[in-house]
Amino acid sequence: MKVWQYLVGGIAVIGIAVQFVPNELPAVESNNPGDLIGSGIVSEEISGILKTSCYDCHSNETQYPWYSNVAPVSWLVSKDVREAREELNFSTWQDYDMMEQLEKLDDIAIEVKEGEMPLGIYTVIHSSAKLDDAQRQLIVEWAEATMDVVVEEEEGTEEEIE
């Protein structure tokens, strides 16, 4: 056997062995009563953008492509999705208190404005998730305006209690 044959064989063996490393993709849940969409603070246009560009990681409604079950891609995918949901999960939006919602909206505006989100490694493969400048602008304006709405709503409910 030639050297290259050993190499290819070795890589194949490692590639197969690696599939047996335990790894679990974060679960998908399509029934989310506390979702942002449906809370009344998003227009259809905005929810459309959020769904295509953010929801794969920042919600419980992840649409896993087939290769996200193949190691080592699966390791990256499960880590990114897990961390993304911890940071911001639109599926549980209504469980956040006012301060959390404000912080998250502020972060959305900052990250999207600066082009940090959606992550480059994600949009390279999911090109439909790429935001153009107009979409970026829309998301930033929505997030900033919604911060005021969140504060006003909270003040409204406080007055009702009083």
């Binding site: 301060m99 959390e100 404000l102 912080e103 909206l105 502020d106 900033e144 911060m147 005021d148 969140v150 504060v151």
Partner: peptide, 15 residues
């Protein structure tokens, strides 16, 4: 900053 923005920053400072 306006109120909502200031509050968001305060929340992050608190964190």
């Amino acid at each position: 900053a306006k109120k909502s923005k200031a509050m968001a920053s305060m929340g992050k400072i608190s964190e």
